[in-house]
Design a protein around this nucleic acid. Structure first.
Lengths: 222, 222, 222, 222
DNA sequence: TATGAATGAGTATTCATTCAT
DNA sequence: GATGAATGAATACTCATTCAT
């Protein structure tokens, strides 16, 4: 159960009123929904589950959200905004002029992982269900997918212009590859809790990813 | 209030019945289902859609499949079997003793892409919906995911033992990364038809992936 | 081919909704179901019949009962409980020490008939469909059947010990016989409305049954 | 599986032809149906079950019977005819003029039990499902029920006229009671195999039933 | 005559949404 | 605002019966 429900028992027999700041209530519903969507997916999560988890009445939910889709969309938009904030260079005070390109790549990877690590449920929803949802959500998902690929493409093209990235690199393919690689690692190591094997932190994983893409996998003599 | 009808007979009456070889019919249903699952996902594909697409009666479908899940599972298992066949080294007559390690890596990547390219719908289903489905399908999906990661891990470990792969590579992370990278590229370039941009063939993409992982992304001086 | 509609909203729109005390509603559904099961049997009673009879929406029924079986089981359990209450000696303040054995037999018979007479529908369901239902209900039916036979057996054995019942009576056969006899009479005279012939009340029938069995079961000195 | 199927394998691959005397085939289907109706009841017995049990094709069944009801009706009518034969006095060469009334009662009871014992399945169907079936079968069931009650009533009235049965006996109630008693005993001891307790034969049970009813029904001088 | 693939009306059940209280 | 009983279109699945082979 969500811990966010404040109960103010005013009635006597079977009416239990709960007064809560609308903003908090909305957040609480979102939190519960996120948890359930993450665990069971969009289709296997029922309104009644969310309502139970949030400890509110069925009807109450509809005072905060137009419908089930609205909840999901809100979650996705939040995700999108947070992701933009996290990976933004501006917020970090990075100076493109002075930063070392490999350092720069490492930074991007790290921030992406940091973001995913910070909210396993949200990350789980996006990475797991990604594109398996109805046409309805396509636009939102696609927006995010495009953004991430564009970001990577931009970085790669910049690198090529600066001579830091080899100029025969196919940016389109590389961007697709990088986004798949990083998101999959994030999913495997942060979204689903690893049953066996060592747990790695963001630093360690960032390091490995950087090394692979920086120098490749094979020994130098190849 | 109640008409109390003893089940009225419902057999068809005056429309010509087309009998078909059961094997063909099953395949036909599977083909239609695959197309629709690929297009609309599992949850948004209705039995009635499949039945309409296959141009059969509702009941006919249930003579071939226990239920909706059964259809999907069959599809997934087919996918799994075909994938194993395609990427198998044995079938290709590869000799691990003599093959060049980079060549070997290129071969693995290529066969995976070949496989995904050969059946865009099947590939779409697996890559798109991957883990976003009900708990029900977890075992099948997980089996495939595990298999692909194990395969990559095995290859990497072999490479390390042979001195072809740098021995400080974290195999666990690298395997996750590689599977994500390759499957994402397959999805982007084969499953969803690219709206804009150039179309690349398997050869071209294999080449790019190999280059990135063989030597890294950055220029040698890094 | 497929319209791919994301579940359209289906809540009611413009018809006045009558809210009812849940307890009353449940009782009302049960009453309607009882009536229909009695009239048409379990298999020939459709959920849609019950829903029509109760003047509620399809979905409403499922807020009160898990499924069709659940309704039937509830009815049977109610029956069972009511029967126990009715035939219980405790409730009637009977003193086994002082009561005349024939009087005692008469009392048992009478209370059973009283019970069956009080609810023709319930009695009809049990007596009519008795053992002809699916394996599902076996346990409930069997429980009742066993209970009634045990009750009679117990009475007979007590009678034998007290010297009131002839000691060469085969209790097993007699108990089966008595339960069949009494329940059949109850069914013939209370459950199905007699088309022709005289209507008898509980008193009259009790009297007749007692007369027939008294001489055959009890010791001569009675 | 029914043992009645004669297989004449003429085809080679997947067509198996069985030629059988139409009368035998019909009997075989009836035997299988009886077994299944007895075990699972009318509604829980599927055509596909019967067909499997009889080891014939679905369509073949419909060459022998109009529909499912037809099979059941045939079974019921057979039952009815056999019962009439068994309990008929004529067949037994009984002389009403000379037979002792108690002996006569005992004979009736015994023949009824003999009949039920001879075919546990048929007996099970009738006794178990009795009146819990659809309106459709009502007429058949009712016919049998009425017949048995009439038979008993007739005997009792004759007894009264002859002074063998006490003249204050309520024939209507007694007939209902007797039919219920005897059929229940038949069901308990012959239709369902007794799990525990002693097994009694027809003689023993007839004896007990006679003893119980003799004293209560017949005039004291008997 | 035997077969069994095909049929489709019928049935139980679900669940997002509404609205009287 | 909060509640939760009521809604009913939608959906999966069944199974007696038919008929082309």
């Amino acid at each position: 159960m969500c811990q966010c429900a404040v109960r103010t028992n005013t009635g006597r027999m079977n009416i239990t009123k709960k007064k809560m700041d609308p903003d908090l209530r909305k957040k609480s519903i979102l939190a519960c929904a996120k948890k359930l969507f993450s665990k069971n997916g969009y289709y296997e999560t029922q309104i009644s589950d969310i309502v139970k988890e949030a400890d509110i009445a069925r009807g109450t939910l509809y005072q905060y959200f137009k419908n089930k889709d609205d909840i999901f969309e809100t979650l996705m938009n939040n995700f999108y905004r947070q992701w933009e904030d996290t990976v933004s260079l501006v917020n970090a005070g990075i100076d493109l002029k002075t930063i070392d390109p490999v350092e720069y790549f490492r930074y991007r990877v790290k921030m992406t992982l940091v973001f995913f690590e910070s909210d396993a449920d949200l990350c789980n929803i996006v990475l797991k269900m990604g594109q398996g949802l109805s046409k309805h959500f396509d636009s939102i998902i696609k927006k995010f997918e495009k953004k991430i690929v564009n970001l990577i493409s931009g970085d790669l093209e910049l690198g090529i212009r600066n001579g830091n990235v080899r100029n025969d690199l196919n940016v389109e393919i590389a961007a697709s590859l990088l986004s798949g690689a990083i998101m999959r690692v994030a999913y495997d190591f942060f979204a689903v809790k690893r049953k066996s094997g060592q747990e790695y932190g963001v630093e360690k994983i960032t390091e490995e990813i950087s090394k692979i893409f920086t120098a490749g996998i094979f020994s130098r003599n190849n």
